[in-house]
């Protein structure tokens, strides 16, 4: 297992050196970015089991902050990253306290409502560019603008952020916080009877999740250099985060990364195959994945993998035991 981990880490670190061209570099950076967003969603939706369909709010805030800082004050966009985190966490408290009274589907529906409301406000607010959105620096003034032609620097920045996020998640999942989250997901009433302060721990999950989703949004707009209400706050952004996490395995550490490694290349492929006209196809694929996951593999691909592995191990045990028995 340890050796496997080393190999995977090395593969991620060295991947850019074996690239045929920038197309694959950009796709790899997009995979990592999607994995950051989905891993952030996973803290609240996977571990704590609160299915938010409104995470685009935090993604959008994170995406707007750097470009707003740049267009309004001429500061390097990266200054907007902490601003995005601060605004996002402030918004979580406003959203979290009323919506956490709701459970299950009602919570999910409330998050959709809030996200759509905010998207409409942004679309009509001239200060933040209304429906046209915002642009980043066309040419980097200094390296601080983090505006690169090659996707490789982005790849390494995203890889570092993802590594930090996964390390933090891994640590939390082993601590009291992680156990309490899973208990809340399994049943709030018994969790409370065992002394779990349910609302407080759900809020912790939301704060962390929102903060990192905001970072994902910031990284997105840093790389793309452009943001509009639809790509920042659109409901499809929220859905994308959920599908990536659920495909790999919600509530598992590496599930979102696995999901991103499958879904993002798939998206890029369909988009390039059918040109601009194929962008609708992505959402047909989303729909198909939702149906298949809900029907056959609600635990996601990693869960399926673990079950197959344990079945194989079991069969091996049985096979090993047989000669002794006979």
């Amino acid at each position: 297992m340890f050796r496997f981990g080393i190999i995977v880490c090395a593969a991620f670190l060295l991947y850019p050196f074996f690239l045929p061209d920038d197309f694959y570099g950009r796709m790899a950076a997009e995979v990592l970015l999607a994995a950051i967003g989905a891993s952030a969603w996973n803290i609240l939706g996977g571990y704590a089991g609160q299915i938010s369909v409104g995470h685009a709010v935090f993604f959008g805030i994170g995406a707007y902050a750097p470009l707003l800082i740049f267009t309004k004050f001429g500061l390097p966009p990266i200054v907007g990253v902490p601003v995005g985190i601060l605004v996002s966490t402030a918004v979580t408290v406003v959203i979290g306290l009323p919506t956490f009274r709701l459970t299950g589907h009602y919570f999910s529906m409330a998050t959709i409502a809030v996200a759509e409301l905010i998207r409409l406000v942004i679309s009509n607010w001239d200060y933040v560019g209304a429906a046209t959105g915002l642009m980043g620096p066309a040419v980097a003034r200094t390296w601080l603008d983090l505006s690169f032609r090659s996707p490789i620097p982005y790849y390494y920045i995203f890889l570092a952020v993802l590594a930090c996020l996964l390390l933090l998640t891994w640590h939390l999942q082993r601590s009291r916080m992680g156990y309490y989250w899973r208990a809340i997901r399994a049943g709030e009433r018994p969790a409370r009877s065992l002394g779990v302060p349910v609302v407080r721990y759900k809020l912790y999950a939301l704060l962390l999740s929102a903060g990192f989703t905001s970072v994902a949004g910031s990284l997105y707009s840093l790389m793309v250099g452009f943001i509009d209400p639809e790509s920042g706050f659109g409901i499809l952004k929220s859905v994308e985060l959920i599908i990536i996490a659920a495909l790999g395995g919600a509530g598992s550490l590496f599930g979102p990364l696995v999901g991103a490694m499958i879904l993002v290349p798939l998206q890029t492929m369909t988009n390039s195959l059918y040109g601009g006209g194929g962008s609708g196809l992505t959402y047909i694929i989303y729909g198909g994945i939702i149906v298949l996951l809900a029907r056959y593999e609600p635990g996601g691909l990693l869960d399926l993998w673990h079950r197959m592995m344990s079945r194989r191990a079991h069969r091996a045990d049985v096979a090993a035991a047989k000669p002794h028995a006979s």
Partner: peptide, 23 residues
């Protein structure tokens, strides 16, 4: 609240076991 009860030292079981089946 129920969690405050637990903290103070009042524990309870449920008539229909509320097992965390995924754990």
């Amino acid at each position: 609240t129920p969690e405050a009860h637990a903290k103070l030292g009042i524990g309870r079981t449920f008539q229909v076991p509320a097992t965390f089946v995924e754990l």
